[in-house]
């Protein structure tokens, strides 16, 4: 049985993509299996760990809970597209490196994308978050290595 296919068109990491996709296909599977962008990590595929976080129109979503047909007409950014072409790492990534916020690194791409979304939101509202707010905004991303302290430090240093 062939599942229904839909034609979608969107941008990913600044490049336009047009594809026919199964309506049931998850964004994470499209990113990892079709586009071969393996930076987005499948930690639980249940929306609980945050490792697969990507940006859709600048906002963090769990790509394991998001159907790819819903990105039609939108802009997706994965960890590979974060830094742009001019520099090798984004400020969020640089801060993570500098503050020792990375150990095994499996949660890291999702963590980076969640932080990027949070930072953009705060910047948009001209808001400087305190440590408690930062912690609250990292709640959806599980890390088992670092104990979060260095990740929170890395976020705090962005403001």
């Amino acid at each position: 049985m062939e599942t229904a296919q839909s034609k979608i068109s969107f941008t990913i990491n600044g490049k336009k993509v047009e594809r026919r996709v199964r309506s049931s296909m998850l964004l994470i599977d499209f990113i990892r299996n079709e586009l071969k962008l393996k930076g987005t990590k499948p930690g639980c595929l249940g929306g609980e760990c945050g490792a697969c976080t990507v940006l859709v129109d600048g906002v963090a979503v769990n790509s394991c809970l998001y159907l790819v047909i819903n990105v039609d007409g939108k802009s997706v950014t994965t960890v590979e597209g974060l830094s742009g072409e001019e520099q090798s790492l984004d400020v969020v990534q640089l801060s993570m490196v500098e503050h020792g916020a990375v150990q095994c690194g499996f949660c890291t791409p999702g963590m980076v994308m969640a932080i990027k979304s949070f930072k953009s939101q705060c910047d948009h509202n001209h808001h400087t978050p305190d440590r408690e707010e930062i912690k609250k905004n990292l709640e959806g991303n599980i890390c088992r290595c670092t104990g979060y302290v260095k990740i929170i430090d890395a976020v705090e240093a962005l403001f």
């Binding site: 987005t40 990590k41 960890v79 590979e80 830094s83 990534q93 993570m96 690194g105």
Partner: peptide
Amino acid sequence: PKIDAGDRVSGKSVF
């Protein structure tokens, strides 16, 4: 900082 942290934050590390 961890010398391979750059690869890990940018999704380049192959798990």
